[in-house]
Computed example of a mutant assay.
Amino acid sequence: MKLSVFSHCAIDTITIGENNYEQIGGAACYCGITARQFKFDVDLYTKFGPDFPKQYLTEHKINFHNSESEKNTTKFAININGSDRTLKLENECDQLDYFKNNADGHLVSPIFHEVSDDVFKKIKNDSNFLFLDPQGFLRQKDPQNNVFLEKTNLDLSHVNAIKVNPEESKQIVNGTNDEMMIALQKKGIDYVLFTNKTDVSLLVKDKIYSITLPNKQIHDTTGVGDIFCSTFTCTMLKEKDFLWALCFAGGAAQAALESNNVGLQKIPKKGIVETNASYFYNLVKFRDL
């Protein structure tokens, strides 16, 4: 099976306490390499500069086309404090190009404005199953390049699944957590994933299914949401079962957090994800709306 991923590669400087780590990343890398763990072919639509080690993608057998830019790679400074983090945009690469493709699913996860409205529309027209993480559509920067979220009018037609947290949801819809999930569903989305720290909820039709990740010491949270999104998408495409997809996604996020690794090193192997998914499957709670 094949997954097409639309997102920028990045070079991140991650600060945890007094320690700094320079890592390659971006949703492009986290989502792409996670999908490879599930034996998916990956077509990556991205842009990166001469400062990015493209051999990393080649080594992981990730396909990319017309991705090289004369501009340097998108770069963030990320400061992490427990489950909270702040971002500063230090460089922004070109917007990505689009080519029609025949993937089983499409995952759109911009990190900062790299997916234009026109490209997003073309992706939606071509996709059989489209998962959206809207973070990069919602982000803006202030004069000091600090990244913040801003209310955005997103066209969510033809989006099958979305992942949002409370802060992101408030930039798209209004209301309580439940009301925001329902409002997103009313825009035509079949699977609304809502992550609030360790609590993960999924709205399907008139039911909310939820799991709670064990509350343990958190080290580096960078990319955990991307690992979650990619795992959910791959499981849905393979198994056609949203409950297993929820449990696999939660299992992948939990494995990544428990690894205590920084950056891409935290992407878990499929085996430990399956073990965690089986654990969560027996603990899923649900309630009617």
Results as ranks from 00 to 15, higher is better:
T176D: 09
A252Y: 01
N101D: 06
I162L: 11
A35H: 07
E167H: 11
Q135L: 05
A28G: 08
V42I: 13
T212V: 12
C234Y: 07
K124G: 07
I78L: 10
S259F: 15
F228H: 06
L184K: 00
Q185T: 07
L132R: 03
L138R: 02
I62S: 01
T46A: 07
D94G: 03
I182W: 01
V284Y: 11
E90I: 13
K39V: 07
A161R: 03
D12T: 12
K71S: 15
T235F: 06
T152N: 03
F248I: 05
M181Q: 14
L283E: 07
Y21Q: 08
N125C: 12
F242L: 00
Q144K: 14
V164A: 05
S83T: 07
L237Y: 13
I227G: 02
S127K: 07
H113G: 00
Q171I: 09
P268S: 06
L44M: 06
M1N: 06
K75E: 13
N282S: 15
R36K: 09
S127A: 14
L132A: 03
H219G: 02
S67P: 00
N196Y: 01
I189Y: 05
Q55R: 09
I208P: 05
A277E: 04
L213V: 15
L57F: 10
S169E: 04
Y45H: 08
L203W: 02
E68N: 08
D51W: 09
V108F: 03
I208D: 05
I272H: 10
V115E: 11
I123E: 07
D220R: 04
G32R: 11
D178P: 02
C234F: 11
L203M: 04
E239W: 00
N215A: 08
Q171H: 00
A255H: 14
K163E: 00
K187Q: 05
E22F: 11
K216D: 13
F6Q: 02
F232A: 10
L3C: 05
L257V: 15
T235L: 11
D104H: 09
Q55F: 01
K205A: 11
F286H: 14
G26K: 10
L130E: 05
T233S: 15
L184Q: 01
C31G: 03
A255G: 12
F112L: 03
S169L: 01
K266D: 10
D288Y: 01
F232S: 06
N91W: 02
L96M: 07
T58N: 06
V200W: 12
W244D: 06
F38N: 13
D41H: 00
H65G: 01
E179C: 05
I123V: 12
I172R: 02
I208H: 00
L3M: 04
K54N: 08
N125A: 13
V5N: 02
V200N: 10
L156C: 08
C234W: 09
E274L: 09
K100Q: 06
L156I: 07
Q185H: 00
T198E: 14
A253T: 15
E92M: 08
L130H: 04
V273T: 14
T74P: 02
D43M: 11
R139Y: 01
D190G: 04
N276W: 03
D178A: 04
E90W: 01
L57R: 09
D94E: 13
L3S: 03
V273E: 13
K205C: 08
I78G: 09
